[in-house]
């Protein structure tokens, strides 16, 4: 009987081996996915580092960071800080094709011949450092004049009052006097590192450049329950206009004074909400949040537990979601005089 038995594995033995292999693969897969996300996060951090180097090289040339959101030389919507640092982040080819003189240069749709020409440039141009690889947002979007790059890194123009923090008396304006309605509830500060209508240099950062956030990541959706959005939808941050768009007000927040009504700036944010706070909420109904009116769009990301930020001294680092709002407000303000707690 025993001599007739063939040397072979039984079905159960095979099943056990397969089960063990299955378990091992099951253990390995999440680790591989985590490694992939880790690599994407590093790449995102590298983008911010490049932006930081660009801002610093710009500072070497012009003795200040660029205007966060500028008005056009002949009036109307000018260009954002992104357009100014292009030659310093290895995008000279795009920079050389952009028209900076004329009216509505940053409005890539419908505003003027110069804006339309710039819109045509942006349709084909890709700005590599403008998008976080982890982000679920579209890299390019039709903003009326064809596809335009939508940046996922926004300049920090300051923070709103609250939680024991108060801006200087002339540091906060009302925002977004556009088109009627609730957008007027936005708040625009001029106390950050990249602000409306003026340049800010290291000499203006009384807190020290190591204590000022210059750029933050806003690379995840906001949620909208607007009836016009057709029910609950996720909306790209600042997606209504692209990376070029600045601001039409030929003045600064300080000069306009508190209570003044500004048109909304693009590619900038005034910090009012905690990072990633609203990822699941109907936050498009929050004051100051939206794809077209969002002067207080929160920092957000698809990374776990926080967002990546660029400090004005050039370091790109991770900001935990649990940072206290007081610390965050102090970090977003260049001259509050406070010492932010370790974060």
């Amino acid at each position: 009987m025993a001599s007739k038995m063939r040397r072979a594995f039984t079905l159960v033995e095979l099943l056990v081996v397969i089960a063990i292999i299955g378990v091992l693969v099951g253990l390995l897969l999440p680790a591989v996915q985590a490694a992939r996300e880790s690599a994407r996060r590093s790449s995102c951090q590298n983008n911010l580092k490049q932006i930081g180097l660009g801002l610093h090289n710009y500072h070497d040339s012009f003795d200040a960071f660029p205007i966060g959101a500028a008005t056009a030389p002949a009036g109307g919507w000018g260009v954002s800080w992104w357009m100014r640092i292009l030659p310093y982040i290895d995008e000279s080819a795009v920079f050389n094709r952009i028209t900076f003189s004329g009216a509505n240069t940053g409005w890539t749709c419908c505003g003027s011949a110069e804006g339309a020409a710039n819109g045509a440039v942006m349709q084909t141009a890709t700005i590599k450092s403008a998008a976080c690889p982890s982000s679920p947002l579209e890299k390019k979007r039709d903003t009326g004049g064809g596809l335009t790059t939508i940046t996922q890194y926004h300049g920090i123009s300051g923070a709103t009052d609250g939680d024991g923090f108060t801006n200087a008396s002339d540091g906060l304006s009302n925002c977004c006097g556009c088109c009627g309605g609730q957008q007027a509830t936005g708040k625009l500060a001029g106390t950050g590192a990249l602000v409306v209508g003026r340049t800010v240099g290291f000499k203006d950062m009384k807190d020290g450049s190591s204590n000022v956030i210059a750029v933050g990541e806003a690379s995840n959706f906001i949620w909208s329950a607007l009836p016009t959005a057709g029910g609950k939808q996720n909306v790209p941050v600042n997606g209504a206009h692209g990376i070029m768009m600045g601001n039409p007000n030929a003045t600064t927040v300080e000069a306009a004074g508190p209570g003044a009504m500004f048109d909304r700036p693009f590619n900038l944010t005034t910090v009012r909400y905690s990072p990633n706070a609203p990822a699941i909420n109907d936050n498009a109904s929050w004051p100051g949040v939206g794809d077209n009116y969002g002067t207080n769009n929160p920092l957000s990301s698809a990374h776990t537990g926080g967002v990546l930020i660029l400090i004005a001294d050039g370091q790109a680092r991770f900001l935990n979601d649990n940072v206290t709002m007081l610390t965050l407000r102090q970090l977003c303000t260049r001259n509050d005089g406070g010492t932010p707690a370790p974060y």
Partner: peptide, 24 residues
């Protein structure tokens, strides 16, 4: 929320309000 104007960037009303060049 209904009173929030969510217009297409190419609509005539939207362009008019964008062109107005508001003064603070």
């Amino acid at each position: 929320l209904d009173s929030i104007v969510q217009e297409s960037p190419t609509s005539a009303d939207y362009q008019k309000s964008m062109q107005a060049g508001k003064v603070p």
